[in-house]
Amino acid sequence: MSTPTSHSSIPNPTPSDESLEPNLQVGKRRSWKKLLEPLALLAPGGIWLGLLLLLPTLLIFELSLVPNIRPGDVVNPSGLKNYLLVFQPIYLQVVWRSVYFAFGTTLVCLLLGFPVAYWIGQMAPQRWRNLLLLGFVLPLWTSSLLRSYAWITILRPTGVVNTILTSLKLPALDLLNQSAAVFIGMGYSYLPYMVLILYASIEKLDKRLLEASADLGAYPMQSFWKVTVPQTMPGIAAGSLLVFINTLGDFVDPELLGGASSMTISRLIYNQFLGATQNWGFGSSLSMVLILAVSIAIALLIKYGDRTPQR
């Protein structure tokens, strides 16, 4: 935000050659400018957010108050019946599965991503870092659907993994059509996000503290838990939340890789809007619950994901 002293572009009138009246005018112009500058800067983004995020969310909220609404019906909000439906055991089970997939994927990404980010951020030669990061982001350039289909080919009983295993005289693994496949597929898809964010945090790690900790007789494990982890905690929190939020809304990988018990909240919402049921009211209330859950996660991120490392 601009402060009054930052208006260096406006010629500062000197009292010697200016009368009082123009001085007032300049003051007026200044206050207009103060008003217009933030407006001009905020308007495009604000209109964008208002029209394409806030307004649709409010419309969904209004829809969620109408029980059994279908396309073509008059929207007439009448109560919270749709929200009570969400809390039936059968739907809670679906919500629970989504959370389970999201949490598991976040854990996979964290466990795989931390060593990688640490290596790129601390140990890899400086001039290779950007290239290494780019290499990690490359998979994001392909379609997520394509990646899921590729995992089917890799994980199926006679797929790539099992061909290699059996040629090494090892027992074949049954990986496809269960949760393991979902964690593999989604973990792969979201690992780049985790690595990028962890990298930003690990790169800033104060090495002097690690040296001090070693000097004072801490084992490497102790140094890691007491010095490295607390310093990179904001990155861990931000990366984990970002992955968690994204995976909570994903249904492509659970659908294609997760087997017969793979209904997630996003798929349930999809069924209400585009499936045979066409119960848009219930779908909207499910969406609102999802939006609320993600908002809470983001609020936590803002509160605890402070960018200044704690020392």
Partner: peptide, 18 residues
Amino acid sequence: LEQVAEVYDNYWTRLKSG
């Protein structure tokens, strides 16, 4: 079958979720 669409959907969600 719009009258029983919800019945079908309910059992379907159970089947794909259980």
